[in-house]
Design a protein around this nucleic acid. Structure first.
Length: 644
RNA sequence: GCCGAGAUAGCUCAGGGGUAGAGCGCUUCCUUGGUAAGGAAGAGGUCGGGGGUUCAAAUCCCCUUCUUGGCUCCA
C-alpha cells in the first residue's frame, strides 16, 4: 500500500500502482470523468500512470491551468494524427500547448496547405476523437527512438532526440500515431469534444530564420461544445475593442499609403486624446523634478557612431540623409538619448545638481520590418514620453524607485491594473551581444530587482531580453486579443555616459562618471493610446474623451439656446458640439451614444425657458434636468477626479 | 523579410466569365419632434495597380502594392 496526500492535507491509502484516475474514482465518479492529469509530487503525470510510492497528488481538471495545457497538448497530437492520415509523409516539428490552445509545426513537403484545408483536418480530428484511442506512454532507448524516426524519415524529430538524454525518452501513441513526447496526456481522445483550427502561419524551425520554414497550424479545443461556442463569442467581442477598428469608428487616427506605411496620422479627435495624456504626463513630471527639453528630429551620423547605435543598427535603419553640398550625413533620430547626453554636456556638472532629469516628448523613427507593422502598436514613427536621468552611482536605486512610482501613478490614473512587470536581463550564454563591463551589469541587474521588490512589484525575469546597453524593467500589458505589448520601460545604462564621456565633479573635486536611466512611462504615445482604446473599449475617462458632451436641441427652435450653452461650456474648457441636424431627438441620442460621448445635454422648450439642461449619461440613460450651472459643477467634479 | 489569408461605393460587406449590388453614411425635399434609427428622392465605384488568357475579365492565371493572422526582429 502507498500513502497519497491530497491538497486538503488528508492522507489516503491505495494499492501500489494506483493511478490518478483510481484516486479520483475513490472520491467520486464525477471527478474521475473530469480528471485530465495528476500532479504527482509537483510533476504533471498522465492520469493513467501508476504511482508506485507515497506521494502528494493533486488531480487536475479543466479548471486548472495545467489541466488545460495537458488537454491542449493531447489535442495537438490529435491534430498530428489527422494530418498524418490526410497528408501521408508529413513530417513533424513540435506541437505544444499555448496560452489559448495549441499548435503543431509541420513540414508538408510540396503539398500546399491553406486556410481552406483547415475544415477538412478539423473534421478528421473529430472523427478520430470519437475512436476513444488511448494515449499510451512507452519509455524508449535513445537508439530505438532514433531508429524509429530514421525509418519514418522525420529529420526534425531526429534532431530533437539527439539533444535528449538516453533513458529519459518517452513516446506516446494514440491510434496509429506515435510521437516523441514527454507528456503528459489526457487518458483518451474522446475527452476532446470540440475542436476549432484557427489559422495557418509560417514558423521557422527552432525559431531560426535561417532554417526551414514550417507550416504552423493553430487550434483550440474544449471538453464541451458549448465552451467552444463561448470562446468564439468572446473572441468576437474582443475584436470589437480592437483599437484599429475603434480608431476608425471614433475618428482617432488613420494611415495613408501615400504618407507611408507605419506612419500614423492623428485625426483631430485622436489628437485631443493624445494631448490630454501628454499634459497629464508633463504635470506629473514637473512635480517629480524633471526639466523639459526639446531636440531636433535629426542628428549627425557622428552622434550615433559615438552612441554605438550606428554600429548596432545602422544597416537595419532608415538610411542617412545628406546635405546637398557638403554631403554631411544625418540620421532621423531613432533615440533621444544621444541628444540628451549633449544637453548634459552643455555645461560642467557638479555632484550637487545631480540627478539631472531631462524629459522630452521625442518623436523617433525606426525601420520596422513591413510584416511587423500593426495598427498603432508597431509603427515606424512614434513619440516617446522619454526622459533621461543622469545621476550618481549611489543614486541609481533611489531614482529607479521614483520612476517605478511614476509609472504606477500613471497606470493607476488610467485604471491599468492588469500588467506584468518584466525584469529583462542579459542572456548569460551570450554576453557578446551586449556592451559594457560585467561589474556594471551585475550591479544594475541587482539594483533593478531590489527596486522592484521594494515597491512590491511581482516580476517575471526574462534572460536575454535586456537592451544591448543595459538591463531594464518593462511593464507589459495585453491587448484585446491577448497579445502582450510593452508599455512603460525603465533602463539602466552605464554605457552611454562612457561613450559620451559624461562627467561631474564630485565632493572630492575629482571627475566622476554619472549613470543614465532611460525611462518612458507610457512607452510611446501611439502604443499607449492603442492599448488604452482597447482597455476601455473606446469609453474614455471623462477627462480624456475627445468629445465630452453633445448638446442636442429637440428641434431647430432651440438651436440658439443650444449654441449659447455651447459657448458657456467651451469657456469652461468643456469639449463638445451642438447636433443641429434636422433629425428627431431619438436619432441624435442614438448617434451620440454610438460615438461614446460621455454626456448628452438635451434642450427643448422647458430647458430654454428655465435655463436648464436635461442630462443623459452614456450607457446609463436619463439623469433628469438641472440648471446648467449645476451640470457644470457636476461635470467638473467628475472630470477632476482623475488627477487632471 | 518569410509563410497563410484578403482588397468591390466614404464605412461594413454580398456577388462572381456577358448592363455593378445591399445596409449605413452623404445631398435635396417633406417633417419641427422629448431620451438608442421619421419619410421620400438623388448623387456616389475603370471591383487596389499592371500584365496575360478569352469574342467578352470585377470574376480565371501571373506579377505588384497595401491590409491582415503568425514567424523572425524590436535601440
Amino acid at each position: 500500500m502507498i500513502k497519497i496526500t491530497l491538497p486538503d492535507g488528508s492522507v489516503r491509502e491505495y494499492e501500489k500502482g494506483a493511478t490518478g484516475y483510481d484516486i479520483a474514482m475513490s472520491i467520486s465518479e464525477g471527478l474521475a470523468r473530469n480528471v485530465l492529469a495528476a500532479k504527482v509530487n509537483g510533476e504533471v503525470w498522465d492520469a493513467t500512470r501508476p504511482i508506485t510510492d507515497d506521494a502528494t497528488v493533486q488531480l487536475l481538471t479543466w479548471n486548472d491551468t495545467e489541466g488545460k495545457s495537458t488537454f491542449w497538448h493531447s489535442s495537438a497530437h490529435l491534430l498530428a494524427e489527422a494530418l498524418e492520415e490526410l497528408y501521408p509523409g508529413v513530417k513533424f516539428g513540435i506541437g505544444p500547448p499555448i496560452d489559448n490552445g495549441f499548435y503543431y509545426d509541420v513540414d508538408l513537403g510540396d503539398q500546399e496547405f491553406g486556410e481552406d484545408d483547415l475544415e477538412k483536418v478539423e473534421q478528421k480530428m473529430q472523427e478520430l476523437a470519437k475512436n476513444k484511442s488511448e494515449y499510451t506512454r512507452t519509455e524508449v532507448s535513445k537508439a530505438d527512438a532514433l531508429k524509429y524516426f530514421e525509418e519514418k524519415g522525420d529529420e526534425y524529430k531526429i534532431e530533437l532526440i539527439r539533444d535528449l538524454e538516453d533513458g529519459k525518452i518517452t513516446f506516446y501513441q494514440q491510434g496509429n500515431f506515435v510521437d516523441l513526447c514527454k507528456g503528459p496526456h489526457v487518458p483518451n481522445t474522446s475527452f476532446i469534444k470540440a475542436v476549432k483550427l484557427m489559422n495557418v502561419a509560417g514558423a521557422y524551425w527552432r525559431g531560426d530564420e535561417k532554417r526551414k520554414q514550417l507550416t504552423r497550424i493553430y487550434g483550440v479545443s474544449f471538453p464541451k461544445q458549448k465552451e467552444l461556442k463561448e470562446y468564439l463569442e468572446r473572441l468576437e467581442e474582443a475584436k470589437k475593442r480592437d483599437h484599429r477598428k475603434l480608431g476608425k469608428e471614433l475618428e482617432l487616427f488613420t494611415f495613408s499609403e501615400k504618407v507611408g506605411l507605419g506612419l500614423p496620422l492623428w485625426l483631430p479627435k485622436g489628437t485631443v486624446l493624445r494631448e490630454r495624456l501628454e499634459n497629464f504626463m508633463r504635470k506629473a513630471q514637473i512635480k517629480a523634478g524633471y526639466d523639459p527639453v526639446v531636440t531636433p528630429h535629426i542628428g549627425s551620423k557622428e552622434l550615433y557612431v559615438t552612441s554605438g547605435h550606428y554600429e548596432k543598427y545602422g544597416e537595419d535603419s532608415f538610411q542617412p540623409i545628406k546635405t546637398p553640398n557638403e554631403n554631411e550625413e544625418f540620421l532621423l533620430k531613432p533615440m533621444n538619448c544621444p541628444h540628451h547626453c549633449e544637453i548634459y554636456k552643455a555645461k560642467p556638472r557638479s555632484y550637487k545638481e545631480l540627478p539631472v532629469r531631462l524629459a522630452e516628448f521625442g518623436t523617433v523613427y525606426r525601420y520596422e520590418q513591413s510584416g511587423e507593422l500593426h495598427g498603432l502598436t508597431r509603427v515606424r514613427g512614434f513619440t516617446q514620453d522619454d526622459a533621461h536621468i543622469f545621476c550618481r552611482p549611489d543614486q541609481v536605486k533611489e531614482e529607479f524607485i521614483k520612476v517605478i512610482d511614476l509609472v504606477l501613478y500613471v497606470f493607476k490614473a488610467l485604471g491599468f491594473d492588469d500588467y506584468t512587470a518584466q525584469v529583462s536581463l542579459r542572456d548569460p550564454e551570450n554576453k557578446t551581444k551586449y556592451i559594457g563591463e560585467d561589474a556594471h551589469w551585475d550591479k544594475a541587474e541587482r539594483e533593478i530587482q531590489e527596486a522592484a521588490d521594494e515597491r512590491g512589484l511581482t516580476t517575471v525575469t526574462e534572460l536575454g531580453e535586456a537592451a544591448f546597453y543595459g538591463p531594464k524593467l518593462d511593464f507589459m500589458v495585453k491587448d484585446a486579443l491577448g497579445r502582450s505589448w510593452q508599455l512603460g520601460t525603465i533602463q539602466v545604462d552605464y554605457n552611454l555616459p562612457k561613450r559620451f564621456e559624461l562627467e561631474y565633479t564630485g565632493a572630492d573635486n575629482q571627475k566622476h562618471r554619472p549613470v543614465m536611466i532611460h525611462r518612458a512611462p507610457f512607452g510611446s504615445m501611439e502604443r499607449f493610446v492603442a492599448v488604452l482604446i482597447e482597455h476601455c473599449g473606446g469609453n474614455f475617462p471623462l477627462w480624456l474623451a475627445p468629445e465630452q458632451i453633445a448638446i442636442l436641441p429637440i428641434s431647430e427652435k432651440y438651436q440658439e439656446y443650444a449654441e449659447k450653452l455651447h459657448t458657456i461650456l467651451s469657456e469652461r474648457d468643456i469639449r463638445g458640439s451642438v447636433d443641429n441636424r434636422d433629425e428627431k431627438i431619438g436619432r441624435k441620442i442614438r448617434d451620440a451614444e454610438v460615438k461614446k460621448v460621455p454626456f448628452m445635454l438635451i434642450v427643448g422648450e422647458k430647458e430654454q425657458n428655465e435655463e436648464r439642461v436635461s442630462v443623459r449619461k452614456h450607457g446609463q440613460g436619463d439623469l433628469g434636468s438641472m440648471p446648467w450651472a449645476e451640470f457644470v459643477d457636476h461635470f467638473q467634479q467628475e472630470s477632476a477626479l482623475n488627477l487632471n
